[in-house]
Nucleic acid binder design. Structure first.
Lengths: 247, 247
DNA sequence: GGCCCGGTTTGATCCAGATCAAGGCGTGGC
DNA sequence: GCCACGCCTTGATCTGGATCAAACCGGGCC
């Protein structure tokens, strides 16, 4: 039940100073000494889109950061119903100190590269580095807030609001504010549905409806979304303040 | 927008050693020195059932622990739809270090007593006490897991499964395993509905259905629930393993 | 070109849970 | 006792999203 390592994609160790997530990941506040300690315990590995990183209930022998690509956390009911419970983007942390069993499945959405830390060594570092532990606390609290926002979406939003919220979320990270905003979804309709607590058909219909209503435009095979007016889209998302998503 | 303090219910400072949540709260791992520091910055206050502790977007000038009673965290959509996003029980932590604005409303469900720490002083302690910060991290990660469990419930469970899950959850904390398990709900049907992403009518109907099917019995005014077979109830809750709730 | 294949869209129908609308039923006040 | 007020339950109806079932559409491969 151990995470099996695809042989492909192993990377040579890389200098932390040059790391693209150096200033946002769990190591963001580290001084040079701590960085050296982390460098000694780290290794890289890459998974292809669709590959399972750990099964629900499986053993995750490391903790680490997403360097590149994205991954999903999903939970299952016994009859096969699925709900995505987290979306990991670059700099997000994966794994829980003090527990090596994963309570949800972790899957690569696109090709994903992790910077992995040996669990035992990382836990030892955590015990005496306030920089690392306080950064991890901060990140965990951010995730908790995000999870609670998502609870509101799952429990009370309509299908249209859910889809609008999701699209606004991804458009927001679009390469700086060109107008129109443009972004290519890393997820298929099925994965979006899993994330939003909907079916694939409903997601498709709502995207069509938003397009018909002039709130978004599609391009190419339907994976690229354009938006001229993000504010108008945010209104469709139904939040009490349009600014909430920006937190 | 500051939390207004009801004059009633202020308590005299109390010895931490005798505190009912001493070994489960954020102070669980503290040594005597740290306990003294906490004791100096703490104060108690009690809210009556139904009172608002902080509004959504309001300022929470303290952080602290629930000593007695229970409180809810809720988020609103602008048209009034509500979703409970957290349920705080004794020993749970309230407030976020580093941010004094509450992203959700905090309300007393039953009469609730908080052990409050001055925010600035607590944050200072957090900076140099590994005991406190590591315990807080642990608690935050537990809450994150709970939030993700709830996302699965909100996104994918049926009304019957939701209600069964909720009842199993509260029965589980019932005063040790007498048979039948008995427990008096601290929440009304409306609050349960807010928690489960349902309407009050649906909650009522599902409770009736579970009773008709012999999975639970009611007593008195419908606030007291008896259960002879928790396992059978857990099956109705639909989790992939009956044990998940016990995490 | 023609075909297959995975992802997406669209249509028709169904049903779980929301909504609307009355009733019970226990408790407290007068 | 009697009434009023909060809850909770129950019934009738409606509807948003699920489900079932086809198309559609672009890309890669023979």
């Amino acid at each position: 039940m151990t995470a099996t390592a695809p042989i492909i994609g192993a990377l040579a160790s890389q200098n932390c100073q040059a790391c693209p997530i150096r200033h946002r990941a769990v190591c963001a506040k580290c001084d040079d000494d701590e960085l050296v300690r982390l460098e000694r315990m780290k290794s890289y590995r890459t998974w292809q889109a669709g590959e399972t990183i750990v099964m629900e209930g499986g053993t995750l022998p490391f903790v680490g950061s997403v360097v590149k690509g994205s991954a999903s956390l999903t939970r299952y009911l016994e009859d096969g119903r699925v709900q995505m419970v987290g979306l990991l983007m670059p700099s997000d942390f994966i794994g829980r100190p003090g527990r090596s069993t994963a309570p949800y499945e972790v899957t690569a959405i696109s090709e994903v590269t992790l910077c992995m830390f040996d669990r035992a060594q990382f836990e030892a570092l955590l015990k005496n580095s306030m920089q690392v532990s306080s950064r991890l606390l901060e990140m965990s609290l951010d995730e908790l807030d995000a999870a609670r926002d998502w609870m509101l979406l799952l429990g009370r939003k309509t299908a249209r609001e859910k889809v609008a919220t999701f699209l606004a979320l991804v458009l927001r990270r679009a390469p700086v504010s060109a107008s129109p905003l443009r972004c290519t979804l890393p997820l298929g309709r099925d994965t979006i549905a899993t994330y939003l607590g909907l079916t694939i058909e409903t997601v498709s219909r709502q995207i069509t409806a938003l397009r018909r209503d002039g709130l978004i435009r599609l391009e190419g095979n339907g994976r690229t979304i354009l938006c001229d007016d993000l504010t108008a889209l945010l209104v469709q998302a139904g939040e009490d303040e349009a600014g909430t998503l920006s937190r």
